[in-house]
Design a protein around this nucleic acid. Structure first.
Lengths: 251, 251
DNA sequence: CGAACTTTTGAGTAGACTCAAACGGGGTGG
DNA sequence: CCACCCCGTTTGAGTCTACTCAAAAGTTCG
């Protein structure tokens, strides 16, 4: 792709700041990857810029804030939280490196949930206006975005962790496996050990159960020899046996 | 917008078949609405074509089918169903006139769930390939699609009916109100009466509870004077009182 | 008018919740 | 450097919501 022919001074594209992008753990998932061609990209103004670090407990946005930018997670973990009718906080989703945040806010122009830093986070901030304009100009960016939307819809709607008609134990087991896979090749997974980047209490909230129930389920799984329950971590045992345990659970 | 300048013989756009589109209940939601300009549109081949009617119980697609087309619901009701780990059918979502189906399938190219006709349905079929190409050519179509994606993500992820940490009664009440609003100005709503376009059993499955529980909750709401429980229908009472009942429920 | 299905009602059970308290580990300040 | 405190986790006890199985009642449609 030759950018120069289509360059429009109104459009700002990728930042080609080597320090920022070369060490980005989201590199292969970068929205702007196709226009990373160094020669061309250097001529245009940045579409994205790195922000952070944000620290555990910080709020990236609050429910009701005006939507101005998408965020791509480069490093760290973020969770979204809503307040239920009964007034309790409920974790809706976790965002990990490579994930794009903002699609839930674009249609109304308002963030529907709080975004809370769960582990020290670096982000790539992408101006919504500029990104949408870039999508109209560069077919590669449009098709990347489309793919993102599709994956987001599929992942969220068919995350079985969100199917609360399953037994609690099924939800726990399934999400531990998902998390292990999602975090493979990160600092959180070493061998069969999955270091949890969130507290068990917060994970319980995401899974729609009380912290006590979650704790008892982990204890049960350990007693059955399927996992080893550790502080802020679990060791996963034989995968086939673990998966079998999901199917045998009642409900 | 002048279509002629950008027309590409490879691109097929809206069908301008008066009989099909003029009576479409999804008219204002049509993906192609902006290029409906009669003079210009007549020159190009159709992007969409009406299909149906499909009858109650028919399968529009089955889990695992190859994704080839999006579907816009013109008339009728469709539900998506998956099979849970424990082998039971679970209703994931209902699609009503104006809704676009297919975003959940686009990223993998495979349908993740069965689509089952719930009420006699007419559809507008949009070739995925053509629609995606049209989005790259016509900014209006791209921006319409983006908006759709955003709404879809927001609606599905933040439908509180899918928040199973709420009490069952809250889920029921909230969804009845949502459904009433969604179906206002259709044949399903007349005055305060909401005719249910699906059986109560199937609605219970969507809400993640047994049919018995659902029945008992409706009986309770009737006893409290909030609704009138009718065959395949409910009459909604005072909205403020109904909403108050959601907040007071425990959990 | 009967058959098939949906909905309701009843009875008993169990999984998950709440409240309560003890335990453990990490971080901080004296 | 150690003691203390705070927070997250675990364990215990009792309760209740929602489930299952079962059967009756109501509804729809050929």
């Amino acid at each position: 792709m030759t950018i120069s022919k289509r360059t429009n001074p109104e459009i700002r594209l990728v930042k080609v700041d080597k320090e920022d992008c070369d060490e980005c753990t989201a590199y292969i998932d970068c929205i702007c990857a196709e226009v990373r061609d160094p020669g061309a990209a250097k001529k245009i103004k940045p579409l994205s810029s790195q922000i952070g670090p944000y620290l555990e407990g910080d709020y990236l946005v609050r429910r009701g804030d005006k939507f101005k930018s998408y965020y791509l997670v480069k490093k760290g973990v973020i969770r979204s939280e809503i307040v239920s009718y009964s007034g309790r906080n409920k974790v809706k989703w976790f965002y990990f490196p490579g994930d794009l945040i903002g699609m839930e806010a674009m249609s109304e122009g308002v963030w529907p949930a709080d975004l809370v830093i769960t582990k020290t986070t670096l982000l790539c901030e992408l101006s919504a206006e500029d990104l949408e304009m870039a999508a109209q100009t560069f077919p590669e960016i449009q098709s990347r975005l489309f793919k993102r939307f599709g994956q987001r819809i599929l992942n969220h709607e068919y995350a079985l962790a969100s199917d609360f008609s399953e037994a609690s134990i099924t939800r726990v087991v399934e999400y531990l496996l998902q998390l292990y896979d999602r975090l493979t090749d990160t600092e959180w997974v070493t061998g069969s050990r999955l270091q949890l980047p969130m507290t068990k209490t917060i994970l319980a909230s995401y899974l729609g159960m009380s912290a006590e129930t979650f704790s008892r389920i982990l204890a049960q799984l350990e007693k059955d020899g399927l996992i080893v329950n550790l502080p802020q971590a679990v060791e996963l045992g034989d995968r086939a046996r673990i998966e079998a345990s999901m199917r045998s659970a009642q409900r």
